[in-house]
Design a protein around this nucleic acid. Structure first.
Lengths: 215, 215
DNA sequence: CCCTGTGAAAAGGTTCACAGCA
DNA sequence: TGCTGTGAACCTTTTCACAGGG
């Protein structure tokens, strides 16, 4: 037995890819997968796959590969997917509504249990099966639905206030789509996804290759 | 003069943050910003800011800071924001519609010029001012609207086909929200944003801290 | 004295290459 | 022979610490 002493962040970020790859292999009925097969399906290289999996402990068989069921179980466990983690979506603009209704969340074990918005017309109603509450109710919502993760889809100007409210309510994990820097305590895990930033990074490369088309 | 010999990827990914920080400082009317101020506003540390900016060439004044207007201009230029890059959104499910209507894209210089969907009821209509075309029309859409970036919001099963079509049409930058690995030629820049994966990464840390709450 | 610019050190992550077990 | 597990080399990124100009 080799316990997962400490798993590097970069590895953690790839574990979901491996899990997806394993799901794709599963229907084939094969009992084992090689690191190369996993690598192809997850878009990384085989050496990296092996090193990543070695951090979970040693689950492969030399000359054979990894047992599919067992590996799936171990990765799921490392990711905490034995539990389901209820999510509250904060802000029901275009993006917020799409997220509240996003089937991929529930499928991955993160059901959207509640939403919060400032619009009086929405408060008290149900949107796509998700009950909508006022911001002031956030604390009790977190308790009642055992919210583990807050998703911030509010405008940039409101985002820090929402983050503060989530933190006060005891939420330790936040995923933000607001195009602004959020400040949270050290013990709160924050992941920021900024769509405009992503496009600007693509823009950099577009611009670069246009420049190099000269000379 | 020190030309931007080669800018590391990690730096490129932070340039949009600095730009946003500069926008926040602008209303104050101050003429210069220090690396520390920029650092606070963009959530990184000051040494990193200085090193990053040094890759663009040297624009700061010792003892004073960076001239706000000039720095804004230089970062914008490095990111290619002098141009606007029209975007096509492929797939008008929940997420696709939200993206097509996302004001942040246009504001950042990436107008959504067109959308593509398989639904005959949507083809030929206009959704939030964005004309919708059939997948088969993608080639001509890319030409007509001078599309620079393809955003894939189609289901996982359709995503690779959409990517192939975009590549055939000559698109060199793709942003994908589909929860699957996409294969594209080396000269095509691909950024994948997987929402379920992001939540799973948060789940890992939730799980970890729960474990450590014992003993 | 203040704040930038940058070598040098440290940390983190990736790739290589091969030993070792089935 | 086949494929895992892993030390070692390598590369990227971050951080430190301070020289140097305003």
């Amino acid at each position: 037995m080799a316990g997962p002493g400490h798993i590097p962040e970069a590895t953690v970020a790839r574990l979901p890819l491996y899990l997806r790859a394993l799901d794709e292999v599963a229907p084939s009925g094969q009992a084992t997968v090689s690191s190369e097969e996993l690598a192809d399906l997850s878009g990384v290289n085989a050496a990296k796959v092996r090193k990543d999996l070695s951090y979970l402990g040693t689950y492969g068989t030399r000359g054979v590969g990894y047992e599919l069921d067992y590996l799936t179980f171990e990765i799921s466990r490392a990711l905490g997917l034995a539990n389901t983690w209820p999510v509250v979506v904060c802000g029901l603009g275009n993006l917020g509504r799409a997220l509240a209704n996003h089937t991929g969340f529930t499928e991955a074990g993160f059901p959207v249990a509640a939403a919060v918005d400032t619009d009086p017309d929405k408060i008290g109603t149900t949107i796509d099966g998700v009950p909508v509450f006022a911001p002031a109710e956030l604390g009790s919502v977190v308790d009642e639905f055992a919210i583990a993760i807050g998703v911030i889809a509010a405008p940039a100007t409101a985002a820090q206030g929402v983050a503060d409210a989530l933190v006060s309510a005891g939420v330790k994990s936040i995923m933000s789509f607001a195009p602004t820097v959020l400040v949270v305590p050290d013990d709160v895990e924050l992941r920021a996804v900024d769509l405009a930033t992503e496009l600007q990074i693509l823009g950099f490369h577009l611009h670069r290759s246009n420049e190099n088309t000269g000379t």
